[in-house]
Design a protein around this nucleic acid. Structure first.
Ligand code: SF4
Ligand code: SF4
Lengths: 133, 133
DNA sequence: ACATATACGACTTTTTTAGTCGTATATAAT
DNA sequence: ATTATATACGACTAAAAAAGTCGTATATGT
């Protein structure tokens, strides 16, 4: 309950690692997978998603890999979560509206306030603040 | 990802409902289950847990049910979550320490700060603020 | 005695998350 | 050209967590 997914953690670890390398070095999924013991195939898919969303730039073929495409202080945690996991929301009704309790729910408004507070916190958190400097 | 569990929502709905009834009325699980269309057995188990932790006071037998045992402004969301779901923590290492990445993790500290911010937010949120006045 | 309610553990189902596999394609080096 | 290495991508399986059910015992008001 209320946990960050592994997927997201792997993405952050990778982003921070890539950020720590020299500006124009392309870093392969294999390298990161080795250093942090992240399952290669899984990490690869994550990096591919980040690449598809213009956070990373991929180079194919031998000696290929990834490098940052946009500065990490230009993106917040909300954006990253949306890419990897879709819309954020601590309760169902904040995302879709199939909840049976919806019309009579007596906690919807207050829970929504909590939801907003968390999202706003994520909005104001740049990735560079998470990945250090 | 990052969602409140149904269990927690049902607990909050029930607490708010009981709070809305006249002070010394005992409210049965069946009544709440009926009003909010919450599966009876599931709700019953939740209320039993709350009762075991002195948040509700149970009356057994016919015409039995529950009433509040402590005022809701004397308990915060963190406490309720701990009762229903155990220790809070947005990443594994904030709870137990079996993560393979633990010793080399490059995002642990910053993620921990996020974790602390969320917990502190929950700490400062009394149940009465969620269940309304 | 009976109806109604809590108490509680075991169990099953459903949903979500995590991880794997297979195959295609791009590219550098030999 | 061939080989080795890497990304790209969809389908699949496995594992874990959450949601819900069942059965049975016990308490109590009528
Ligand atoms: S309507 Fe109420 S019970 Fe349903 S998802 Fe929203 S907050 Fe939760
Ligand atoms: S050590 Fe790092 S990867 Fe492991 S649970 Fe903690 S934050 Fe996540």
């Amino acid at each position: 309950m209320f946990k960050i997914t592994r997927k997201l953690e792997y993405a952050l670890i990778a982003l921070r690692y890539i950020q720590g390398q020299s500006e124009d070095k392309v870093v392969s999924a294999k390298e990161i997978s080795g250093v942090y013991r992240i399952p290669l195939q899984l990490l690869a898919k994550i990096l591919q998603e980040l690449s598809k969303h213009d956070i990373l730039e991929a180079t194919q073929g031998a000696h290929g890999g990834y490098k940052l495409k946009k500065s990490l202080d230009q993106m917040n945690l909300t954006a990253l979560i949306k890419i990897l996991e879709g819309p954020i929301g601590i309760m169902d009704c904040s995302i879709d509206t199939k909840c049976v309790q919806l019309d009579i729910c007596n906690i919807r408004k207050p829970i929504n306030r909590v939801n907003d507070a968390i999202i706003s916190m994520f909005d104001n958190l740049t990735l560079s603040e998470i990945t250090g400097i």
